[in-house]
Structure formats: structure tokens, C-alpha cells
Write a protein that binds this DNA or RNA. Sequence first.
DNA 1: TCTGGGGTCCTAGGACCC
DNA 2: TCTGGGGTCCTAGGACCC
Length: 418
Amino acid sequence: MTTLPDPASARTILHVDLDAFYAAVEVREQPSLRGRPVIVGADPKGGKARGVVSAASYEARRFGVHSAMPISRAWQLCPQGVFLPPRMELYLAVSARFMTLLERFTDLVEPLSVDEAFLDVTGSERLLGDGATIAAKIQAAVASEERLSASVGVAPSKFVAKIASDLRKPAGLVVVSPAPDAVRAFLAPLPIERLWGVGPKAATRLHQLEARTIGDVALLPLAHLIAAFGEASGRHLHDLAHGRDERAVEPEREAKSLGREHTFEVDVADRDEVGRMLLMLVEQLASRMRHQRLAGRTITVKLRTADFETVSRAVTLTTAVDTTESILPFARELLVKCDTTRQPIRLVGIALSHFGVVQPALFEPKVARQGRAVARTVDRLRERFGDAAITRGSLLDLTPPSEDSGPRRKAPPRRSTH
DNA sequence: TCTGGGGTCCTAGGACCC
DNA sequence: TCTGGGGTCCTAGGACCC
């Protein structure tokens, strides 16, 4: 069966992306920074620190600095740069206003991270004008209300809109006509690295198949792509290269996992120290879980050794958990199972997934019930007096890892019970 | 250059059941 | 005693994204 594309049912998808987000917010807050190379990320500590660049202003990018680059490298490339620590609370507040602004143009807004979102404006066009017009209105609103610049891609599908928004940053507006031929013509000359989901590994394999542009990939037989990338990825790649992407804009995506991890400033050989860090991460994770009214059945512990090898061990319980007391015994056991090489430890992490509902208190073992009561009390104390108000004895000699997370995917979903 | 912290999705193999 | 094929769940690892 072949389904002919029906022009009447073509969608208009926008991808809106704030330019150099963290750096742009900092410049907005401190006008003296305007025009200077601003680098938001880890403290460079004289070029010796671990950590990476979270965002770089366009002035900093001229020195070759970009996000995800080791901060030590940025320090070498741009010693005169203004290095700033991330202020996540500030960015999250701006992000929330940005998403609310976008909702004026359609109900179908899917946040992809703090600073970007997909919009399906197909139903808004009669009232607000075509995709390009809506895109321009969004850019004007972001500029006047948030004093930030946004780049927008307009296309009949998510991945083409995403590629389009990236093409003329900053403050770019790229419109791709919805006709299938026009979409293919737009994609064909672009390098395969532009494809969303094609990273260094896939790029190398595509080069081995003699494909350098998306147009080259479109010429490869489906069977070759499946042989090289597996059933799902091969088919996906084939579809994308031909401009086919039916994925819907989904405003209410629920989180699937939640985790905390920490990289030590210096690799740690002392297993007690790793254990104390794990306890602290478990406490922070459990607290976040309760805050977001989530509980998880699968507990995963992750270790990264000095040689950058990563090992994880997981266990799935019959009931979902959200307290330190219920997570910690399993976490400790998993930590031992991960620790096979006895090398110094670079990173330790904990995550919960497989979300479900906490067992009703009535059927809970007594220890778990007591753990929950303790957790509730601790949560309340911390809410009133701050996180430092109450700490476990074994944690007192540790400085907490900073809470500045990278972009978070989604507003917390709500759990029906509890 | 020496690689954060937060996530998502896919794969392959094994256990287990029908 | 040997054995098919399918489905589901779980684990470990890896690629990728911001």
C-alpha cells in the first residue's frame, strides 16, 4: 500500500532555539558583558579543572570555544574570556517564561530542553498567519519580552524543523516548503553530521558507505543501512534521508528516569569516600523523587574508573521506592558489584527508573514505613530551614556536589496517587 | 583537548513461560 | 530425551542529545 502525501494534511512544525542561552542570559543580567567572550561552565581553576563548557557567547565561539568542550581547553583558547558558573535557578525561571510565551501560539508545545521546543502550529495558521509569520512573531516576542535572541526552523516535520533552526544561528529564520520534493532538495546537500541522531560513530560508518551528504544516504539501499545500523536505526536513517518523519509534537511527555552523579575533582582510591558520596547522591535523588512525586522500581549504580571505563549494575524491585532507607541497601550492594577492577574511581552515580506507585503504607514492611516517616520529616525541615538544616552524621565531612544540572528535559509529571 | 550532569533510545543476550 | 518459535522482562553497554 502506498499512501500519497496529502497536501491538505501537511503539518507546520516549528523548532525554536534560544541562541547561546546561558551566556545570553548572563549578558542580559550584566550589560557590561556585552561584546565580550562569555563562557558559562565549570570553574577553570587556572586551566587545571575537570568539567566542560555549558554555553559560550558568539564572541567566545570566535576563539573556537563551544559547549561540551573541556573547560581546560577553553581556558587555553580564550584566556581573556569571562568564565562564569552556571546559575541554573535563573535559567530555569527564564526557561519557564519562554515556554509560557510559546504557548500563546499553540497548545502543542513540546519542550526539548531548557532552551528549545517544538511547536505544531498547523491549527493556529488560520488565526495567526503562516509558519514563517508565526516564527517571526515568536522571535519578536522573545526579543522584546525576554531580551534574548531565538533561531527558528519552519518545516513539515520535527527533524527538518530542527535542522533548519540550526542553519542560520543566531537569530536565524529558515523556512522549508512542505512539498516532498522541496524537503528532499533542502536536505540533499547537507552533510550527514546535520542529521539529528547521527553522531561521530554513525558518521564514520556512513563515510565508509561513501555517504557524505544526506542526499548520498537517500541513494543507499534500505538493506545496506539495516545491515550497517540494525533494523530500527537503519530504517529510521533511511526515512530521515528521504525527508520522512511522522513523529508528533507531544506536549505531555513523562520522565522515564531520574538520577544524580558526581565526578570527583581527583580520582578516589578510598572506597569509604566513594560510599559516602553514594549515600549523599542517594539522599539528594530520593528527595527529588519525592518532590516530583515519583517512585522507581529499578535502581542503577554507575562507576567510572580512572581510565574512563564505565560500569553499571541494576536491580529491579517488585515495588517502587523513593526513600534513602529503601534505596541505600541495594545501592551499596550494586556499588560492590560495579567495583570489579579496584582502580581509582572518577565518577559515581545513582539513578531510578521504571516509575510506578509506592506501595500503600498498609502493606509496607514496618522499616519502610518508618523510613517514609523520617523522610517526610526531613523534607519538611529542609523546606523550612534549608538543605543544611539536617544532615547525616556520615556526611558532615563532605562538601555537597553542586546542584547545577545541565538542561533538564521536562517539567515533572504528576503521579496520580500519594 | 582529556572528556559534566542531566537525560533518551536501541541492542543483544539470557531467563522464563506457553 | 530432544526440541521450535514467540513473547515478555530484565540487565549491561553504548550512541546520542543539550
